[in-house]
Amino acid sequence: MDHHRKTIIAALRRAGLGLADDRFELRPLDGGVSSDVWEVTVGDQRYCIKSALAQLKTTAEWSAPIGRSKAEWNWLRWVGTRFPDFVPRCHFFDPAGPALVMEYLPPDRYPNWKRELFAGRISNGFSKMLGARLAEIHAASACDENIAKAFSNNADFGALRIEPYFRYTAMREPGVAARLNALADEQALARIALVHGDVSPKNILCGPAGPVFIDAECANYGDPAFDLAFCLHHLFIKALVIPGAKPALLDAATSLSRAYFAKVDWEDAAAIANRAAALVPALMLARVSGKSPVEYVDRDLGQTVRGAALALLAAPLADIHPIGQFLAGYSHEPG
């Protein structure tokens, strides 16, 4: 029995979800770069169990505190208590792992949004619902000192987002280093609302009742504009690199952001739009020059993304919607 299986079975036993070793069936799932994730069958029940990695699966050295599992557990439980349809049901947190035992959501009923986008199934209705749900989470947590104290995960957020996406990219892109470091400083100090930290299409499931958020390892009380920008920058990158999909993806980004801003009531919508617009090109650049490069972008397409990001950093826009308009007409000239 290998180490992973022993660890998972021990966590399941502590959760009271099985008595005999031969009752467990384990199947590895795609956990991205930061975790090991398994589908576990115990009798006639299925669960998802997730364990954070201290060293992430990236080419560049990238380590992060495994205590982030507790932050994810707390985020899922906090959101699930208020918005049950927004997240998987939580069963057990095992600090010894650390490991999370959650509801297993079968892909035939909960397809992954990233896969849907690449398959050309791009729904503005789904994008609108996602934007609205994200804003509802931010609105419910904004300007709340108790939540701020409960989710003061600055070290985790710094290791998982600020250092690899901003500081590391600044070292590799000296022409915009001052701008990236200034954004990093702003994000490190922001204390506005509860942030998921990884609102990526791969971490959104298309459930029967709407979008379901997973993978909240980067949860922190910070800037809600980060969540919005993080989701939008993925749509913008895909618009640049997926043949024929640009109009639909840019429309989806517009639908998502408009639905989000329609529910912003904790601060001036123009202020959060301005911060998100500043973050988007920095995040786009990070996905080709940072520690977590986008796996579906080759060198040539990476230069397209880099060129667009640098152009937007050189002439910052004050709102999200003009970014989509800029990208709609953007084409990269080789060399």
Rank of each mutant, 00 (worst) to 15 (best):
E295R: 07
G329W: 09
E295G: 06
A259M: 02
I323S: 02
P243K: 14
A277V: 10
A262M: 11
A315V: 14
K263N: 11
F261W: 06
T304C: 13
R275H: 09
D300N: 15
A318C: 11
G329H: 07
Y260N: 01
A318G: 11
Q303R: 13
L301D: 15
A328M: 10
M284F: 10
L301P: 13
A277N: 10
I320C: 00
A282M: 01
A286E: 06
W266G: 00
A253P: 05
S255W: 12
V241G: 03
A271V: 15
R258S: 12
I320H: 00
S289T: 15
L285C: 04
P247W: 10
D268V: 08
P293W: 06
I323D: 01
V305Q: 00
V297N: 14
A314K: 08
D298G: 10
V280C: 02
S292T: 15
E295N: 09
P281C: 03
P247I: 09
V241H: 04
L256K: 05
K246G: 13
R258T: 11
L256D: 09
P316Y: 03
F326P: 03
A315S: 14
L240I: 07
V280S: 02
A278R: 06
D265H: 13
L283S: 02
E295S: 12
P293Q: 12
A309Y: 04
L317P: 03
L283M: 03
